[in-house]
């Protein structure tokens, strides 16, 4: 069995007017089907670049990015994406926004089946009754929920979330964490979540990857036990506190604010 996502020895540099900017160097990742990985690291280290590699929007200079053991050669419609900016189209209703990918990805769904699929997802994330509203009539958290539905509507194998809750207030964000667990129960996908919130990482993921500062390599991998739905109390258990302490320490190393473990030893 191949892992769902496998990244091996990836190096990548952007060509800029002032010369190449190395962004990734020694990126490794392996994630089984149905898994959920959270990627954390200093800002500007190359996290979004990682998502663009997995989604096939870019090819790495060196190394391999594979889905199902198959090298990613270009965009593939088996990927769904959502970003910090929900970018909903203002001239479409929420329902039509969610259905957008179905207009592009070839599928055999009839019009009614598409509407049903979109309505089902909207009710799953708690947006029942908002189908005919315009994006501007929704709050930031609701828009992010709709954006999540759009990313899922074509049943992608891989769901990529690039800091999707980063711009939301703390309460709305925690609400959305619960929603994510609900969605994970009902839909089958392999998740990649970019985040800068360590609590979010251990609450949602079964694997947390810490990237070093730019150029990023995989610096640390943490396995999170017990990944089923749970309430926020779990973030205040001793196990959670320990994981958070480890991650915080790793982030400090990545930022260069603490000596790396090798240097200490």
């Amino acid at each position: 069995m191949y892992p769902m996502i496998k990244i091996e020895g990836v190096r990548h540099a952007y060509q800029t007017p002032t010369g190449p900017l190395p962004v990734l160097d020694g990126l490794e990742m392996s994630l089984d089907e149905g898994g959920f990985v959270a990627v954390v690291g200093p800002s500007g280290c190359g996290k979004s670049t990682l998502t663009r590699l997995v989604s096939g929007l870019m090819k790495p200079d060196e190394g391999r990015v594979m889905l199902h053991g198959e090298i990613v050669a270009g965009p593939r419609s088996t990927v769904g994406m959502a970003f910090q900016n929900p970018v909903l189209l203002e001239w479409r209703s929420i329902l039509q926004n969610v259905m957008l990918p179905l207009e592009i990805v070839s599928n055999s769904l009839s019009k009614t089946e598409r509407v049903e699929r979109a309505r089902y997802l909207l009710s799953l994330v708690g947006l029942e009754g908002f189908e005919d509203k315009r994006p501007s009539e929704l709050s930031g958290g609701m828009r992010q929920r709709a954006s999540l539905c759009r990313a899922l509507v074509h049943k992608p194998e891989v769901l990529i979330l690039d800091e999707p809750f980063g711009a939301l207030d703390a309460f709305t964000r925690e609400d959305l964490w619960q929603t994510m667990h609900k969605v994970k129960e009902q839909e089958s996908f392999t998740g990649v979540l970019i985040t800068h919130d360590l609590r979010e990482a251990i609450f949602l993921a079964n694997q947390v990857i810490v990237l070093s500062g730019r150029p990023a390599r995989t610096q640390y991998v943490l396995d999170v036990p017990d990944t089923g739905p749970r309430d926020l109390e779990h973030l205040y258990t001793p196990e959670a506190a320990e994981m958070l302490a480890i991650l915080r320490h790793q982030i400090e190393i990545a930022q260069g604010r603490a000596p790396s473990d090798q240097e200490v030893a």
Partner: peptide, 18 residues
């Protein structure tokens, strides 16, 4: 045009014309 639009549509295999 926000780059996110382009990324979402291109990752689904949409053409420039679409």
């Amino acid at each position: 045009l926000e780059p996110e639009y382009r990324d979402i549509l291109r990752s689904l295999g949409a053409s420039q014309a679409t």
